[in-house]
Amino acid sequence: EKRLIRVAVYAQNGFVMLRFENYCAQEVELGADGLPRRNTHGGSDLRGVRAAAEKRGGTMTLHWENEWFTLRVLLPQKS
């Protein structure tokens, strides 16, 4: 029943970080590729996010801890 999403955007030292946190009581297991093991957690959609970040010289990371699923996208800031 909990539907919580937190969003933050930071700019520092020539980079922009987008951070999305989603409440998720069920543990999200990440595979060797860093994406969720089960499609129910959007693994295929996250491949597109990672590809878009990498195309722009950035990275994408995922993390699950204490019932929070965190997606971070780090991009170089345009000068």
Rank of each mutant, 00 (worst) to 15 (best):
V7N: 08
K2D: 11
L35G: 11
L4G: 03
L62R: 10
G14A: 14
E67A: 15
E67Q: 14
R56E: 11
R38H: 10
T61C: 07
H41A: 07
R50F: 06
W68E: 09
M60S: 09
R47P: 02
G14K: 08
R50D: 08
E21F: 00
A25T: 09
R37V: 15
A11Y: 02
F69L: 10
L4K: 06
A51N: 01
N39M: 05
W68V: 13
K78E: 15
R3C: 10
D45G: 13
A51W: 02
Y10F: 14
E67V: 06
L46N: 00
E1H: 11
R37N: 11
R72T: 14
P76Y: 04
V28D: 04
T70K: 04
G48P: 00
R38W: 09
G31S: 15
A11I: 04
L4M: 09
R19E: 14
T61M: 12
Q12R: 15
K2R: 13
Q77K: 05
A25K: 08
N22H: 10
T61F: 05
G42F: 03
N13H: 02
A51I: 00
N66W: 02
Q77Y: 02
F20K: 14
E1R: 10
R37H: 06
A25L: 10
P36L: 06
R72L: 03
R3S: 13
D45W: 03
E21K: 08
V49P: 00
L71A: 07
G48C: 06
G57A: 04
L62G: 11
R72V: 11
R3M: 15
L4H: 03
R50G: 07
G42T: 09
A53C: 14
P36R: 10
N13W: 00
F69A: 02
D45I: 07
L18C: 08
N39C: 05
S79I: 01
A25H: 12
E54W: 03
F20C: 12
H41I: 00
G14L: 14
R72Y: 01
T40M: 13
Y10K: 10
H41F: 15
S44D: 06
I5L: 15
A53T: 13
E29R: 13
N22R: 14
T40C: 12
T70C: 06
